[in-house]
Amino acid sequence: MLWLLFKTFFLTGLVSFGGGYAIIPVIETEVVWQGWMTTQKFTDIVAIAGMSPGPIATNTAVFTGYQMAGWAGAAISALAMVLPSLILVLIVASFFNRLNHNRVMKSIFYGLRPVVIALILFASVKFALSTGMAAEVNLHVASLTGIFIVSLYSLVKRGTHPAYVIAMAGLVGMAFYS
């Protein structure tokens, strides 16, 4: 299990371009494919990772690791996520700044950035499906969609802090769904 966690998150760490939410579908694909947990449970983990300080992708890995194999799992997952970056930073740091002005490097990012946005949108579609937001039309689904719209509105238009949005949605859920 520990080796499997290490392998999964080392690979994830290696392709973590753009950080944050772009990496969520990478972890989700692995986690669901390995049969570790359902997409719905994974959404809960992403929510908690998003509320914690620190990078969301690393937090998600630590959380998944803990759920699968306790303390050792959490530690291995954190290590595996950060190791590729650490190695690459050390390599780049030894020829500082040359990479940044390299045209090939820039071309790579020209192609990577739109892929990152596609990954993020893909994650949102997957999670929306797993919450049942698009399943059928009833009052419950309408209220979930309502939470989605109000959350998105406050993030985009009001500049509300993400942690605050999650906390408010949790309170609304507690008030109406129990």
Partner: peptide, 10 residues
């Protein structure tokens, strides 16, 4: 309640 908010976050 949090799940749709996570979708919004993404």
């Amino acid at each position: 309640g949090i799940r749709p908010a996570v979708v919004a976050l993404i």
